[in-house]
Amino acid sequence: MNTHRIVSKMVMVTVAWCLAGAAALAAGGTLANLQTAYQGESNAKARYEAFAVKADAEGYKSVAALFRATAHSEGIHATKHAAALKKLGAVATAEVAVPEVKSTRENLEVALKGETAERTAMYPEFIKQAEADNNGKAKMSFMGALAAETEHAKLYQQALNDLDGWKATGKTFLVCEVCGYTALDAGLKKCPVCAAPRAKFDFFK
């Protein structure tokens, strides 16, 4: 009888310890993910800013506008990730490498590859982890980034498909200040992701 109770107590303690351990590990997961994402967005921002300068120099005015818009968007995501990190008691740090700048066509290909990796592999994983960790703020930050990266990839693909057509100015891109959503401006009145009104958009042309 007595041994039975001791054994069951031990089992309970073990289970509790395992659960606590798993939770701690998971929290570590989202924390690390936020750092990774912050690093990624910060570098993307620097890279796109450099690409914008190059596109301007090569006379791809609309591509330059697009890169300035996406750079701004990545900056917003970096800020959001940093806020989520702050809530976990951590400080966001990033090592920003000097970006490697090639021709505008190659730059677009690099950008497209990066966005595609982020949106098909990295962010979906991070979102699952944030859900498991029950970290709403991190999840929202990741989801906002994911939604925007999807649009970025589309826009890069459009530019690659018609690079000569993107030499001229005339294309305007909007970036939602609240969530970083990016799109070709067609008079959009509200952000489809966060519902912010047009007054909350930044425009790049």
Binding site: E131, G136, K139, M140, A147, V193, C194
Partner: peptide, 16 residues
């Protein structure tokens, strides 16, 4: 919703 199911999940989405 573009940001996923808003009826359950994170607080901001649910508030909205």
């Amino acid at each position: 919703h573009p940001m996923g199911n808003q009826l359950t999940g994170d607080a901001a989405g649910m508030f909205l």
